[in-house]
Design a binder for these strands. Sequence first.
DNA 1: TAGGCCATCTGGTCCT
DNA 2: AGGACCAGATGGCCTA
Length: 207
Amino acid sequence: MSPKVPCASTDLPTSRDAVTRSRFSPPSAGGTAEDSGESFPRKQHTGTGGEPPAVKHVKQKSRGEPRGRRRVKANDRERSRMHNLNSALDALRSILPALPEDAKLTKIETLRFAHNYIWALTETLRMADQRGYLQGGSGLSSPTSVSSAEWDSPAECATSAEFEPRNCYPPSHQMKCNILTRDQSSVFPVTFYIESLCVEKYKHSWQ
DNA sequence: TAGGCCATCTGGTCCT
DNA sequence: AGGACCAGATGGCCTA
């Protein structure tokens, strides 16, 4: 396992997160919950049987911190870790092509979209190389106009013969953007396909 | 109201 | 021993 990266101050809870956290906000002072292993009052995991999950293999330690305190600290760390993960996902969302207003990709959509997007850019570079765009040292810059990318309805999309989608992603929708060469002398148009799962929920935004 | 998404808690496992 | 990571469980919120 790789060395752990210290938890940076990237705890940027989402609005939904903030709601949840306020709902589970800890008591203000002197939490006696530490003794019971609960950091703060919360709904019990009653399940269908109305009983909390069974505690399996509880190790009784004669030394060190009480179990309750350790559990509270572990919960805090886990919460922080998940917030860190969410921050990374937000950072990933921020560099993906713009979506319709107020549309936020879910976690799984973000990962799939990013996967598709990276593949599209890689494919673009490959094609550019084949056409000689990369000769002379000018190269391609990062996509500069993806923020104004156009969303095309499926009916208007014509499958590009030069840019076949990967087999595992059905060519249901396309997205177009331009990539500029570093010297800004030429524009390299890109059309790539977005997994239908990512786009489906935003259909109404651009129809 | 059902289903999707999410945050959180929790215990187990692995690693340092 | 303690922290990071993981997966399962649970309940809240939101939308079709």
